[in-house]
């Protein structure tokens, strides 16, 4: 498979959030600001790439019947690493993301790529796929976070450009659903 196409498919054509609709819980929950969305995206990318690598390397050792539980254990180990590193070095981000860091384990995107791609394709393809999908996920989360932050707080990446408050509802739960709905619709139109 062409590696360039394999890498870029995650951004628009097969974007995990806007097109495949995978991993929507963290997408909606942590994108109250662009930075939180970016942080969550990078954490997921790390887990995705590492689990893709390990799953690909040991795929021939795992009996077919227990492959899903084995994949989950591999993913959970990397999530624990992310949890510890983030708690140590980025405590603010860690408390902002809250339970959604351990919940990367049940993000259907990570398990979906391990099961659907890394356990079947070659090593290089798996790494590129994990990187592409992860960065596509990061792109979607940052975009959603940026739109919500601009509308809801009048700032971007914490830099305030409008005096006074924004439209608060966009930072709260309803705004997450509505902005994602419109972003998907716009992306469909663009395609």
């Amino acid at each position: 498979m062409n590696q360039v196409a394999n890498f870029t498919k995650g951004f628009i054509k097969e974007n995990p959030v806007f097109v495949l609709l995978l991993g929507l819980c963290p997408t909606l929950a942590v994108t109250s600001s662009a930075f939180n969305g970016f942080g969550m995206g990078m954490a997921t990318t790390f887990v995705l790439v590492c689990s893709n690598i390990v799953v690909n390397l040991i795929r021939s050792l795992i009996p077919n019947k227990v492959r899903i539980p084995s994949f989950i254990v591999i993913i959970a180990s990397f999530v624990t690493i992310v949890e510890m590193v983030m708690e140590g070095f980025l405590p603010d981000l860690f408390s902002a993301l809250g339970i959604f860091i351990p919940l990367i384990v049940v993000n259907c995107l990570v398990l979906g790529r391990a099961e659907g791609f890394a356990s079947k394709q070659s090593f290089v393809s798996s790494v590129v796929d994990g990187l592409g999908m992860g960065l596509g996920f990061t792109f979607a989360l940052t975009l959603l976070g940026a739109v919500r932050e601009i509308l809801g707080a009048g700032s971007i990446f914490g830099y305030k450009f409008i005096a006074g408050d924004g439209i608060l509802v966009f930072i709260l739960a309803p705004g997450a659903f509505i902005v994602l709905g419109y972003l998907i619709a716009i992306l469909r139109r663009v395609k």
Binding site: L21, V169, A173, P174, G175, A176, F177, I178, L180, G181, Y182, I184, A185, I186, R188, R189
Partner: peptide, 19 residues
């Protein structure tokens, strides 16, 4: 362009607003 998931998400947003 809004058919399917997008309109469902907007409806969910309004439902969340009600809650």
């Amino acid at each position: 362009g809004m058919r399917g998931v997008p309109i469902a998400l907007v409806v969910a947003g309004i439902l969340a607003m009600a809650f």
